[in-house]
């Protein structure tokens, strides 16, 4: 059986659909100490804002059942450093186009960052994060209403021809409505789902574990939630979906694609097993063969009835 794992995401050719998710892969450098990251389909860089950000106070991390909370709060060196230093370094260590993840506190900030990052040769796709649950006065604020999600999409669309994926939060009444709204404003695709809002309490100290009180829940526990959301949005829109949320194995990749994902992002798993994405990629042919899949891109949405 000849196995073909290649995909084409809005004109960006990828060797496979496996993409480390933003915030779990930094700018790739740390992972080169564990494996040759050139095997990746692509990767999504740390969420970038106009100005440098330290992020939230610590603790930022907590254990949960089959997963974790994080409240990093978009720590990043700012778009100018990303353009001047990180992306050129990524070109050296990775070589293929990456996904530039962009956070923001205003429509103008999304536009500024998008313009600067779209101008970089090795940025293949812009991923507009309107769904970070860990920053106040921004992030998720734009992603919880169809009108503001549409406004960000419209503004970014005007400044770039590169593919735009809008990253959506599941912490809403109807994610399909928001997906349709960004599609109508010219989004090329949807990234979903961002983390679910959660918290843990330190019972000895009688205080929340996370300094920010709440954090984003990710890991295998959220996989069924992500799968259902991707399945529903696949029905609602006609643009490709990068599916994510608890994906940890080649089996999960297949399942996420059958639900409707054209590509799959892997998040928390990278933090537990630094070689998670490499292991998934290596295992894909075996799992494809198991399910009689020759061409991986053919299975997107295959579970729809």
């Amino acid at each position: 059986m000849v196995i073909d794992t290649r995909i084409n995401l809005c004109g960006v050719e990828m060797d496979n659909p496996v993409i480390p998710a933003s915030g779990t892969f930094d700018y790739g450098r740390e992972f080169t100490e564990w494996y040759d990251i050139r095997c990746l389909g692509s990767f999504s860089i740390k969420g970038t804002t106009a100005e440098p950000r330290f992020g939230n106070p610590t603790p930022r991390i907590a254990e949960c059942a089959s997963g974790m909370l994080n409240a990093v709060g978009l720590q990043n060196p700012g778009v100018d450093v990303v353009v001047a230093e990180e992306l050129p370094n990524i070109a050296k260590i990775y070589g293929k186009p990456v996904i530039a993840n962009i956070g923001g506190f205003s429509v103008e900030e999304y536009v500024t960052c998008s313009e600067k990052l779209a101008a970089c040769d090795n940025v293949g796709i812009l991923e507009i994060n309107i769904s970070c649950p860990n920053v106040h006065g921004g992030g998720m604020g734009f992603g919880t209403q169809a009108s503001s999600a549409a406004e960000v999409t419209r503004a970014v669309r005007k400044v770039t021809d590169k593919p735009i994926f809008i990253k959506l939060t599941p912490n809403v009444t109807d994610i399909c409505e928001i997906a349709k709204a960004v599609e109508a404003e010219g989004a090329d695709g949807i990234s979903m789902i961002n983390t679910l809002l959660g918290m843990r309490i330190d019972k000895r100290r009688k205080k929340p574990i996370i300094a920010n009180v709440t954090g984003g829940y990710s890991g295998p526990a959220v996989f069924p939630v992500a799968l259902a959301a991707v399945y529903r949005v696949y029905k609602a829109v006609n643009i490709p979906i990068m599916g994510m949320g608890g994906v940890s194995s080649a089996e999960d990749v297949i399942e996420m694609m059958m639900a409707g994902a054209a590509a799959v992002q892997v998040g928390a798993a990278n933090l537990i097993n630094p070689c998670a994405c490499r292991d998934i990629i290596n295992d894909l042919p075996r799992v494809m063969e198991k399910y009689g899949i020759e061409k991986l891109s053919d299975i997107t949405g295959g579970a729809h009835v």
Partner: peptide, 13 residues
Amino acid sequence: RMGCGFGACMGCS
């Protein structure tokens, strides 16, 4: 408190 322990997640900055 750490997420990854090897510099990827910015959990312990």
